[in-house]
């Protein structure tokens, strides 16, 4: 089985990798690049634990082949903080206790950041629908939604 050579940018870093044609971007991140912050909860796009951005757009990395990443910019949970400085939404997740077990948290944070990159004035309903593709079984979503709303308020200086 011939491997495909892919050149991409991950969290701002030029990255090259070889992958099998059937391997997903999630497989590549976790198994080839050691970036295990992106989680697999279902492998079928139903849980959002593997959320990443591709050219700024939120996608499930389990629903994309590694080969499709050629020439695109990928953003993962490992790139949400800038060095030691947490992104405000990461801080708010801690402040609001918006995680219990933490397995869905990377996907929620990548998704929430993608929302906040588009708008700082989301309504509660918009937050809930934007995040509907990210399953959380621990929290009942209450504290997650509050954390995202509070981040938006802080970022818009309210």
């Amino acid at each position: 089985m011939s491997q495909i050579h892919v050149t991409t940018k991950i969290n701002g870093d030029e990255t090259e990798f070889l992958c099998g044609p059937e391997e997903t971007l999630l497989d590549v991140l976790r198994d080839h690049l050691g970036m295990t912050g992106t989680k697999e909860g279902c492998g079928t796009g139903d849980c959002g634990a593997c959320s990443v951005t591709v050219d700024g757009r939120l996608v499930c990395s389990c629903l994309m082949l590694g080969a499709e990443a050629e020439g695109h910019e990928i953003g993962t949970i490992e790139g949400v903080a800038k060095g030691d400085e947490l992104h405000p939404v990461q801080k708010k997740f801690l402040d609001h206790a918006a995680l219990q077990c933490g397995i869905c948290t990377p996907g929620f944070l990548v998704a929430a950041k993608a929302l906040l990159d588009r708008t700082l004035e989301p309504t509660e309903e918009e937050v809930r629908y934007w995040l509907a593709g990210n399953l959380c079984r621990c929290t009942g979503y209450d504290k997650i939604v509050r954390a995202v709303m509070d981040t938006a308020a802080e970022l818009r200086g309210a």
């Binding site: 996608v59 629903l63 934007w130």
Partner: peptide
């Protein structure tokens, strides 16, 4: 069709 993530694709 699908979630925000699926909408992206």
């Amino acid at each position: 069709i699908g979630s925000t993530q699926v909408q992206g694709r």
